[in-house]
């Protein structure tokens, strides 16, 4: 009787350990399988020719993804230029100014915005943003600026919620101390609260970048997917994610391997961004 309960407790514990390990196992599998498919081509064609190659014609033996790397960063930076100030403003408003009822309205709205599928963003981008850019700014409308606009909105929830958490966790005494010195609310925010929440806000930007650089469906619908480095904000472009999504369904042989090589580069970029956001910056907060 006693032994059975003790045995059961041990069994439960080991089952739970196995469950907990599953996350690591999945991560490991994802890593291994993407690397296993993506690395051989780096060895065969050469790292330089892939990462710094300008030409992508996989059926003819060209696997250059440099324009896509640049394009991915360009749309990401564009998204940040739009999303970061807007997101931070929202977070400041929510944490410092909004009353309880406004918060009750705004916070769920932002969470809901995060839940809208990216295909819907892409679709509305094509229907509304692309023609708008075409008629007012010129070009085809499928462009860096259209993509950045849509991505900028898509990363808002990430930036708002993480910045908000950082702002809210600034100790009350800081605010009170500053207010006691006769500072206006904005002076307090500007001089005391934002500096103390700096690392959290930065983390929110970096995670927003990660979200933007990894975004796929909306991007392939709006970006135009052209295979060159855009020279103006009105030029079409193809991102790393777009490259994979556009061609994976029919690619075979080395062509498919080339898409996995694209995936490897994307994975490395995402890992670096996440590492910086999660460990580099959050650790600073902890101190």
């Amino acid at each position: 009787m006693i032994d059975r309960t003790v045995l059961k407790e041990h069994l439960v514990k080991w089952v739970l350990v196995a469950f907990a390990l599953s996350s690591l196992l999945f991560l490991f599998l994802i890593f291994i399988f993407i690397l296993a498919e993506g690395l051989p081509l780096f060895l065969k064609v050469g790292v330089n020719k892939i990462i710094f190659g300008m030409k992508w014609a996989p059926t003819k033996g060209y696997f250059g993804i440099f324009p896509m790397i640049i394009s991915s960063f360009l749309v990401t930076i564009g998204a940040l230029i739009i999303g970061a100030p807007l997101g931070l403003s929202c977070a400041i408003y929510l944490s410092e100014y909004a009353g309880k009822r406004t918060k009750m309205l705004l916070k769920p709205a932002i969470e809901l915005l995060a839940g809208i599928p990216s295909v819907v963003f892409g679709f509305l981008g094509v229907i509304y943003i692309v023609p708008l850019v075409r008629s007012y700014l010129g070009g085809s409308g499928f462009s860096l600026i259209s993509t950045s606009l849509v991505l900028g909105v898509m990363i808002l929830p990430t930036i708002i919620s993480i910045s908000f958490d950082a702002l809210v966790s600034v100790p009350r005494t800081y605010r009170e101390g500053s207010a006691a010195m006769g500072a206006t609310k904005w002076q307090t925010i500007y001089k005391v609260i934002i500096p103390s929440a700096k690392s959290g806000i930065l983390a929110s930007f970096i995670l927003g970048m990660g979200r933007a650089i990894g975004e796929t469906m909306a991007v392939i619908m709006i970006a135009g997917n052209a295979l060159k480095i855009p020279t103006s904000i009105l030029d079409p472009l193809r991102t790393l994610t777009g490259n994979i999504a556009l061609e994976l369904a029919y690619a075979t042989g080395d062509h498919r391997l080339g898409l996995f090589s694209t995936g490897v580069v994307l994975m490395v970029i995402i890992m670096i961004l996440n590492y910086v956001a999660n460990f580099g910056i959050k650790r600073k907060i902890a101190k």
């Binding site: 991560l27 990894g214 994610t241």
Partner: peptide, 25 residues
């Protein structure tokens, strides 16, 4: 810490990479 690292990393992987992985695996 390892497990949390695994969970955090999984959360950060964009869906297209899940697509790649699911496709090949």
């Amino acid at each position: 810490k390892f497990i949390r690292f695994g969970v955090e990393s999984l959360a950060g992987i964009p869906s297209i990479l899940y697509g790649l992985f699911g496709f090949i695996f």
